[in-house]
Amino acid sequence: MSDGSTRGSGTNHRRSTVNRLSAENVTLAYDQRVIAEQLSVEIPDNSFTVIVGPNACGKSTLLRALSRMLKPNEGRVLLDGQVIQSLPAKKVARTLGLLPQSSIAPDGITVGDLVGRGRYPHQGLLRQWSAEDERVVQESMARTGVAELAERYVDELSGGQRQRVWIAMALAQQTPLLLLDEPTTFLDIQHQIDVLDLCADLHEEHGRTLVAVLHDLNHAARYATHLIALRGGKVIAQGAPNDIVTAGLVEEVFGLRCQVIDDPETGTPLVVPAARTARTRHTAQKVAATGAS
């Protein structure tokens, strides 16, 4: 905290090095089941941060805590220097958007109407549908390539189109921070890349900060500017993919033997799992070693 003193006696000055969104020593649990203890994470401003880790490592839970869906049992989540739960709900919703893993499209709703619901935090009892709302909705639909679907019903769209519509809704919220929980799940490879390209565009465009949970390590390494690797509720490594993704890290986080080579397309790390024979030999050695000791 040495730099705090150099700032003088300013009472509510935030240090410019502090990022807008962070979790400090949070303990996250569902009822009695503890998912993570004393976890601290900083989301670098203007980054495309991707959280990776094996199933049940707490990545979605962390995202829920960052988006104030889950209140930490201990510790705190800070947004712009304030405990996120203490801020007015609509104010948070104008700063931080979330695309949850599962969302329900109401029966018989059109694409335009659904995207329009993203304007809720900007509206009030008397100001229910301003010209600005209309403009932002059009822009969000154009941005995600669903403008021509505006009059269609959401139920009749394909999975890839539907995901774009939900992203458009989150965009209409106009938040500088956008959190996405596994946005590519249930999509085929072409639409996965499509959605990730869109995310990369959104990130580059306005310096928007994006945080996504992704399953696919190679997608994460290709698109992220900042990677957070979780295992058992602990951060094992974080940093730029080129700096941190190594065979050793993948084995430590996922328990998978692999090679890491340069992606021939982008030069980012590419994880190639070791052949089955190599892995079984390895396991056999491990078993023999533990048996001998």
Partner: peptide, 11 residues
């Protein structure tokens, strides 16, 4: 109608 998570996210 869109689920609790989406509504929380919208404030």
């Amino acid at each position: 109608e869109m689920g609790d998570d989406v509504s929380y996210a919208l404030g």
